[in-house]
């Protein structure tokens, strides 16, 4: 189980790195999906090790939330692009000043 958790940790950190490092909104969104998936892998590994089923059920709910989040986030990205003509995250600065 430890191996699986380490792999999940590595993927989660790569996702976090992508969120912090990139400015392209679509790539940030995809890094978020990576982090979701790393968490899912952790859930399945632990619930396999402890002979439970709740982790696997939770993964299904995480997938539901990820699908809803994908629809809304991509809607926001399209609206942002229509407003600004770019998907650079630094251009989202209306609340600054």
């Amino acid at each position: 189980m430890n191996n699986y958790l380490i792999v999940a940790g590595i993927i989660f950190c790569i996702g976090a790195l992508g969120v912090l490092m990139r400015k392209n909104l679509i790539i940030v969104f995809m890094s978020l999906e990576l982090m979701f998936n790393a968490a899912n892998l952790g859930f399945v590994a632990v619930s396999n090790r402890l002979n439970l089923i709740s982790g696997d059920i939770f993964v299904i709910f995480v997938m539901v939330v990820a699908a809803a989040e994908a629809a809304v986030a991509l809607g926001i990205i399209v609206a942002f692009y229509r407003e600004k003509g770019t998907i650079d995250m630094d251009k989202a600065n209306e609340l600054k000043n």
Binding site: M1, N2, G9, C13, A16, L17, N51, L52
Partner: peptide, 28 residues
């Protein structure tokens, strides 16, 4: 970004490798 990711990964490794492994509790 790199600093935060490395620190996060170090925490995950410490808690994963250093933590105690629980005995299986469920029946499934």
């Amino acid at each position: 970004g790199i600093v935060i990711a490395v620190v996060l990964f170090a925490e995950i490794v410490i808690y994963t490798v250093g933590g105690k492994t629980r005995k299986p509790t469920g029946e499934i």
